[in-house]
């Protein structure tokens, strides 16, 4: 019994239908974690990308190192690090927040590369033209850079959002009851692991296929005219 929902292990079908609502509750946690993590990744990625363009060497190099380090180390270990180390220094937060932070940090390393690629793809001539027109840095980013970069990076960002969604099961190791965590708990109590796990896999597969198709559609609709980069 979980969340007031009992399961019925008499037949596989009965078992599947009785645990589906429980797994779907877990899915809401999964989706929330992925969305929150992605929000962090989008913001932190931009911060990293801009810091990396800093004219101060120490800043750009440090940022490059941090990004590389985040990118080259496992999410699981980063998660353990935040979960166990932060409380030692008095930073206590709910497990969900720790999990989301770890997801967001890891993926901000990826998204910063996406931003960087997008910004670098703007031809040098446009920066020079902007300077020649005496535009402020803010205007250049607002009117020249962002309108050209955003359509180019949306598909890559979408793919990272999906990738992140698929990595949320890792959060189950710090007691977050998302889908995989619940499936494992059901398994522990019923000694039937395979069916709950298969269902989790199928739910992931279904949602990933839908999201990928949606990104593909979006990619086709994005304006291509007026974005003649490279």
């Amino acid at each position: 019994m979980m969340y007031g929902l009992a399961w019925d292990t008499s037949t596989p079908l009965a078992f599947a239908t009785s645990i589906l609502p429980i797994l779907l509750i877990g899915l809401t946690v999964t989706v929330k974690a992925a969305l929150a993590g992605f929000a962090i990744a989008i913001v932190m990625g931009l911060v990293f990308a801009l810091l990396r363009r800093s004219r101060i060497r120490a800043v750009s190099w440090t940022t490059a190192f941090v990004v590389e380090f985040l990118r080259d180390t496992p999410l699981l270990v980063q998660l353990f690090f935040l979960y166990y180390v932060l409380p030692d220094y008095g930073v206590v937060m709910p497990a969900f927040l720790t999990g989301v932070l770890a997801l967001g940090l890891q993926y901000s390393a990826y998204t910063s590369e996406v931003y960087r690629g997008g910004i670098d793809a703007i031809p040098r001539g446009q920066w020079e033209a902007a300077t020649a027109l005496n535009l402020s840095r803010l205007t250049v980013y607002r009117d020249i850079v962002i309108p050209q970069v955003v359509p180019r990076i949306v598909p890559a960002m979408g793919n990272y959002a999906v990738a992140m969604f698929k990595e949320t099961p890792v959060l189950s190791v710090i007691t977050i009851l998302e889908m995989l965590g619940l499936a494992n708990m059901i398994g522990e109590q019923t000694y039937q692991y395979l069916l709950p796990l298969t269902m989790v896999g199928l739910i992931f597969l279904l949602l990933t296929l839908i999201c990928s198709a949606a990104i593909h559609q979006l990619e086709r609709r994005l304006p291509k005219a007026g974005v003649p980069l490279k």
Partner: peptide, 16 residues
């Protein structure tokens, strides 16, 4: 294999 989590795959293989 691209559409599901590696962790789910590992547990699944472990039990299946």
């Amino acid at each position: 294999f691209r559409g599901t989590s590696l962790l789910v795959q590992l547990f699944w293989l472990y039990y299946a």
